[in-house]
Design a protein around this nucleic acid. Sequence first.
DNA 1: GACCGTTTAATACAATTGTTTGAATTCACG
DNA 2: CGTGAATTCAAACAATTGTATTAAACGGTC
Lengths: 219, 219
Amino acid sequence: MIARRATPNAGRPDAATRDRLLAAATRLFAQHGFNAASVRDIARAARANVAAINYHFDGKMGLYRAVVRAAVQAMRAGDDAFLTAATDASPEEQLRTYVAGYLPRIASTDDRTAWIHDLMRHEMAEPTPLAPWIAEHGILPRIQYLSGVVARLLDCKPADPRVARCVISIQAQCLFYRPDRFRAAAFKNWAFTHADLAAVADHIVEFSLAGIKRLASRR
Amino acid sequence: MIARRATPNAGRPDAATRDRLLAAATRLFAQHGFNAASVRDIARAARANVAAINYHFDGKMGLYRAVVRAAVQAMRAGDDAFLTAATDASPEEQLRTYVAGYLPRIASTDDRTAWIHDLMRHEMAEPTPLAPWIAEHGILPRIQYLSGVVARLLDCKPADPRVARCVISIQAQCLFYRPDRFRAAAFKNWAFTHADLAAVADHIVEFSLAGIKRLASRR
DNA sequence: GACCGTTTAATACAATTGTTTGAATTCACG
DNA sequence: CGTGAATTCAAACAATTGTATTAAACGGTC
């Protein structure tokens, strides 16, 4: 039967099987993607039975949905922390805040924050039916915020085609610092200390501000 | 027995089974990645028997190696066409030539040129043992060329940390225009006409030149 | 036309996939 | 202790995976 738990009282003595499954699935889906992560591997990592996945989540896709939901939620929570912070600051300062807050999360290798971006990378390479939903709820808000900042910097309407191009230029630079084996091989000394990362954030801001100012003056 | 064909005389009346397998594998590996593309799907698409893959390529991994070898080869051939073209041009003009030549290939949806980048995307999400080799032979040469151009623009040594950061900023902007479902959902009107693409190339060059000049003046 | 190496084909193999089943176990409550 | 619902478990399911086996078909040379 279906028979879901009526009250989600997660206050069990030890972590409930459902929670352990969710945690293990988060790690393995982020590492290998939806298809390549097997339910048996997930169950073993969670010290649970395979059937528990179907019992608690209605199958592999249901488990994935739960992971993705949590990912988007964590993403928006992280954004709100520094996006809504200084709405009265200058757009230059807003851009600096954005990059300084975003880049460390992108470049992080700490599993507690990095898994979201690994999940996204797999969705880009081999999309699941959830891809459009993730893009709309996890990414679009950030793009729209950035568009507003850039439009003020360019002193034009957000619909101006230059806005989208500049937003992409900024976003692309940040995203590129997500570590992977390709970058490690193509760019030697890829490992970043905290100081390096701050320098990179500085670079992206200066580089982008110069580019934007240039395009603002033309036309 | 092993019994590989002594001479690779591909001049058969109709396309040899080996060639059809290679073509089908190229398409399917690019679409779904190494693991998700099954040998049976490849064989069916090539109108060949499953065992033909083991006979001609010594297994799935051998087939993938052949595809990747061709990919890197095509990549370098495409690069040489416009990288070695104008070595006496100004670095500004070299950058413009680079972006104008590179971006259309990145943004292409034509299977004859796009498959290479799709292959790379899968390697980034779920690397195979070939990943380091691909990075070294397929990507590193381009990065080194770009580093030389940027070093001249910055008027500094290629080892200067600013060079790598600027190269990344340029490369990241170009790579971001590879189409996928996420970008289509996050950026409306993502489809590009030829004119749009030229405008984007122009944007990247102007944006980046302004950024580089700015960083050249500081320090 | 008979021979022999090359290529194709059908089939079998063990391993792994997601899911289902039905019984055993656990837990809260009377 | 006893009852009944919630949860866990081992086992089995059919489908799919990459590879190996073995025989049949092909193609050029004597």
